[in-house]
Simulated assay, not measured.
Amino acid sequence: MIVLLAEPETSASVLYGLYDVLLSAGAVYTDMVAGTPGQELLEVKIASADGKAFHCLGNIPVEPHAAIDDLDRADAVIVCDMYTSIHDVPTGRYPREAAWLKRLHRDGALVCSVCSGALLIAETGLLNGHRATAHWAYRSMFQRNYPKIAFRNESVLCLEAEGDRIVTAGGVSAWHDLAVYLIARYCGYRQAIETAKVFLISGHSEGQSPYAVMTRPMASEDGPISDCQTWIADNYAMAKPVERMVARSGLNARTFSRRFKAATGFAPIEYVQALRIEEAKQMLETDTLSVDEVGVSVGYDDPASFRRVFKRGVGLSPSAYRKKFQRIAQIARPLEVH
């Protein structure tokens, strides 16, 4: 049995997408290709804290099959996304659910999450000492509030804690990858392939990095650092930007680096590189400049250096990134009327 844990903060697309795909394993493919419905291979239930009907995000109605305390066993439980602001740590928000997850995990269940659902698993302590993923926007939150967890913001499906029966999936649509993984685990590889064909699920082989956008919370409590953040936002392409920020702050280099990292989650040079790459990404998505011209525009006179830094941060070369997002632009851009 696979249990989907949902709350009012859950996205309907994640909850009902997972439910539909997992429940279809074994049943739909043969019906589509041979006209003979197969047998459902997975028992899937939706659960909430009290089991009562509620509305999730978008005011979509949800009628759980059970309350969590009515389910004392499961092969796997998936914590669906539970939207949380990147500034609002959900500490203590779900005590009953956290205790229930720990109990099921202790009794042998595989514990999984999608997107911000990883925050609830983090609250249980089960992820301490492990690598895990969630949506890339939660990188800084994990670093600040869950330092015992190695956050993998580039991963779509993190299996590095699989040996301890924990699997985490990245952004909201990463439920596709998690669903295919679970079908393969419990029903076999062939069933996973057939289900993927039914739903046109191709996975996210390039990871999250091409989609990630730099989050930049301002260091409002540290005036010199906040001032430098404001300054570098418009001056990232200048030569020796870190030296200029150190001089601007009035701090010595070591103190500046320590306070900057504490306030932003980035080392100063990493912050500058992230700003440059973020601007380069936007230019590659929309402009017609060559890759080398884009590199120069954001502060890299050496084309090889620009390509190396871009590939390390994004997971794709600048040319591959441009090709990927120009395809999306072609789909999204309205047809021009002549």
Rank of each mutant, 00 (worst) to 15 (best):
138 Y>I: 08
79 V>L: 09
62 V>K: 12
264 T>I: 01
158 C>L: 01
131 R>D: 10
19 Y>E: 08
122 A>V: 02
179 A>T: 08
278 E>G: 07
321 Y>S: 08
99 A>W: 03
107 D>K: 15
178 L>R: 02
248 R>C: 02
231 W>Y: 14
91 T>Q: 14
50 D>I: 05
181 Y>F: 15
262 A>Q: 11
49 A>C: 07
234 D>E: 13
233 A>E: 10
86 I>H: 02
325 F>Y: 10
204 H>W: 12
184 A>G: 14
92 G>Y: 06
73 R>T: 14
211 Y>I: 00
335 L>M: 14
293 E>F: 00
200 L>A: 13
5 L>S: 03
144 R>F: 12
221 E>H: 13
37 P>S: 08
256 F>L: 11
134 A>Y: 04
23 L>H: 05
167 V>A: 02
212 A>L: 04
77 V>D: 08
314 V>L: 07
103 R>W: 08
217 P>Q: 02
80 C>M: 05
80 C>H: 02
113 S>C: 07
191 Q>I: 06
21 V>P: 02
170 G>C: 02
175 W>S: 08
262 A>H: 09
112 C>R: 03
11 S>P: 14
233 A>S: 15
51 G>V: 09
82 M>L: 07
46 I>K: 05
205 S>C: 00
222 D>V: 13
82 M>A: 12
288 T>H: 11
174 A>Q: 08
84 T>A: 15
40 E>A: 13
291 V>Q: 09
260 F>E: 06
186 Y>S: 04
309 V>N: 06
91 T>K: 15
59 N>E: 10
141 M>P: 13
292 D>L: 01
222 D>W: 11
110 L>D: 00
168 T>N: 09
119 L>P: 03
33 V>L: 04
29 Y>G: 01
129 G>R: 10
162 E>R: 14
288 T>S: 14
208 Q>H: 05
25 A>I: 11
180 V>T: 12
224 P>M: 01
54 F>E: 01
37 P>D: 08
142 F>N: 10
83 Y>E: 10
62 V>Q: 03
3 V>K: 05
209 S>W: 05
44 V>Q: 02
272 V>P: 00
48 S>E: 06
126 L>R: 00
289 L>Q: 14
283 M>Q: 14
16 Y>V: 07
195 T>L: 12
155 S>E: 12
199 F>R: 04
243 E>P: 04
293 E>P: 02
7 E>R: 12
149 I>R: 03
303 P>L: 04
321 Y>V: 06
229 Q>D: 05
57 L>P: 01
96 R>P: 01
222 D>E: 11
150 A>D: 15
185 R>I: 03
302 D>H: 13
255 T>H: 11
